[in-house]
Amino acid sequence: MSEQQVYEPRVVAFLCKWCSSAGSDLAGVSRIQYPANATPITVPCTGAISPMYIMSAFNKGADGVLVSGCHIGDCHYIEGNYLARRKMQLIMELLEFIGVEPNRFRMSWVSAAEGAKFAQVITDFVNDLKPLGPQEKLKKAEHS
C-alpha cells in the first residue's frame, strides 16, 4: 500500500446548529455511509463564523475546511447565511490569492432534511482533498 492511499485528509467542518448540524445527525441516524474524516464544530449560525476560525483551523493542521449552513432564505436568524456568503467568498478568494489550493476550502448549504446531501458533500470534499495531500502551507510547524 503506498503512502498516498493511506493518507486520510482531516476536515474541520463548521456546521450551523439549525440546518447542517441537524443534517449531519440525519445522515448518522439514517446510517448513510460517508467518510469519517470530518471533525464537526457546531456554531449557532454560519454568519457567526469569523474568517479567523478558518485561518485558525488551517493553522492547527486542517487539510480542508468546510463551512455549511442553511439554504438561502432558511436562516434561523433571517440573514446570517447571506452575511456568511459574502465573508466566506472573501476569505476563499484571499486563500486562493496567496496560493492555497482552492479545493482546501468549501462551503455548502445543507438543510436538516438533507442527510444524504451532507454525506455527499463530505464524500466529495474528501475525494477532492485526497490528491492534494497534507496541507503544510498554513500549518504550524512542529517544534520549529
Partner: peptide, 19 residues
C-alpha cells in the same frame, strides 16, 4: 496567534488583518 514570528503565525496575522 502565537508570539513567534514564524510563517504560520505571520500568515494568520496578516490574513486576518486583510479580512
Amino acid at each position: 496567534i502565537e508570539r513567534s514570528a514564524v510563517r504560520s503565525e505571520n500568515i494568520t496575522y496578516l490574513m486576518t488583518r486583510a479580512m
